[in-house]
Simulated scan of single mutants.
Amino acid sequence: MARDLSGIVLIGADSLIGELGGDLTALKTEACLPPASFDDPDAMISAEAALCFFELAAERLDCPDFGLRLAQRQDLAVLGPLYLMMLTTATVGDALHLLAQYLRLHSSSLVVGFTRNREGALIDYAISFSHEHDDRQVIELGLALVTGFVRSRAGPDWYPLYAQFRYGAPTSATLHRRAFGTEILFGQERNAVCVDSATLRMPMQSPGAAAHKLAVQMIRRRDAFDGGALSPRVEAAVRARLAYGQTCSAETIAGALGYSVRSLQRGLAEAGSSFEAMRDAVRADLARKYLVQSHVSLAEIADMLGYAQPSALTRAFRRWYGVSPLRYRRDARP
């Protein structure tokens, strides 16, 4: 299944690469991005190629904070009607919840989660499909843009309560602290920022009822047009729930997407898949990433992925990869 990403993710990358002394044409060629990728930000591009492009840019330019630097040249206004609709919500929390609900209409390969907790809400950011690329540049770009949006409402001195990332700490975290503050955790189970309750309750400055009505109509028309793309939506929903250790059954996913269980299963069958197969594939991908990119224990991974015991995860992991989880973790790390 083709995975697409909106070309808006590339805005500003050409000038940044030029300033860093890089060869944009060579990077596009190596990543298999079409030559005209930067000409139309509204065009859809291959998500695999985009992930490869960001990974190569950071590596070839010796710029491990490439995504954070790019975030300084972008903002969420590039989301067009979705951004306008966010501005017309009552509170910052409502705007973030809306972003989590509708970002898929811009890029089915990205998923934003909005989960309430005791401190406020966790806003997490993830790639919605299995891949082999180092995705930290895209993840940091996305979370920095979300943080920047909140800061534009809460004031220039606002920072999330904390930010957390799956991968290990970089050699230098200067730009991370500039973007997210001093409370940054690495080697965690997810990529997320925590927004405090007081900030979530802050009112948005609404452009007015007419603008809100127009934005809602545009988003709903696009949502209706996108309705046939069921498999990516199910995969993204499964990935989001498993990332938080939430119950992930056909019933919960169908309810979250507005389907009956029968309609969900029928739609997936027509696409040549099933809910069980899709959940199994997402579990396999997340288990591998948790083992390699974080220091989370096997028992914690099993619990997050919905297994009653670590032994059940071990059996599943052997079926997926032919080795035990601990052996895989040991062999994958330098």
Rank of each mutant, 00 (worst) to 15 (best):
G7V: 06
G7A: 13
L10K: 02
A13P: 04
L16P: 02
G22H: 02
G22I: 06
D23G: 13
D23V: 14
L24M: 13
T29V: 06
E30H: 07
P34C: 05
P35E: 12
F38I: 08
D39I: 04
D42A: 10
A43I: 00
A43H: 02
I45E: 10
S46P: 05
F54L: 02
E55H: 01
A57D: 02
A58N: 02
A58E: 00
A58W: 00
E59C: 00
A71N: 07
Q74C: 04
L76C: 03
A77N: 02
G80F: 08
L84W: 09
M85P: 03
L87V: 12
D94E: 14
A95I: 09
A95Q: 07
L103Y: 13
L105E: 14
T115D: 14
R116A: 14
N117I: 10
I127Q: 04
E132I: 10
H133M: 14
D134Y: 05
D134F: 05
D135W: 01
R136K: 11
L145P: 10
T147P: 08
R151P: 07
P156H: 11
W158Y: 12
P160W: 00
L161H: 01
F165S: 04
Y167G: 04
S172D: 15
T174I: 08
T174S: 13
R177L: 05
R178V: 15
T182G: 03
F186C: 03
R190M: 12
V193G: 03
V193I: 15
C194V: 00
D196N: 05
S197V: 00
A198M: 04
T199S: 04
L200M: 00
M204C: 13
G208K: 07
A210P: 01
V216C: 11
Q217N: 12
M218R: 15
A236N: 08
V238T: 14
R239S: 13
A240L: 11
A240F: 03
A243Y: 06
Y244V: 07
Y244C: 10
G245M: 13
C248E: 06
E251F: 08
I253A: 12
L257T: 08
R262P: 01
A269V: 09
S273P: 06
E276H: 04
A277E: 14
R279K: 10
A281V: 00
V282D: 01
A284S: 15
L286W: 05
A287H: 02
A287F: 06
R288K: 12
K289W: 09
Y290V: 00
V292G: 01
S294F: 03
A299S: 12
A299R: 09
G306D: 10
A312P: 03
L313G: 11
F317A: 05
R318P: 03
S324A: 14
P325T: 09
D331M: 12
A332N: 04
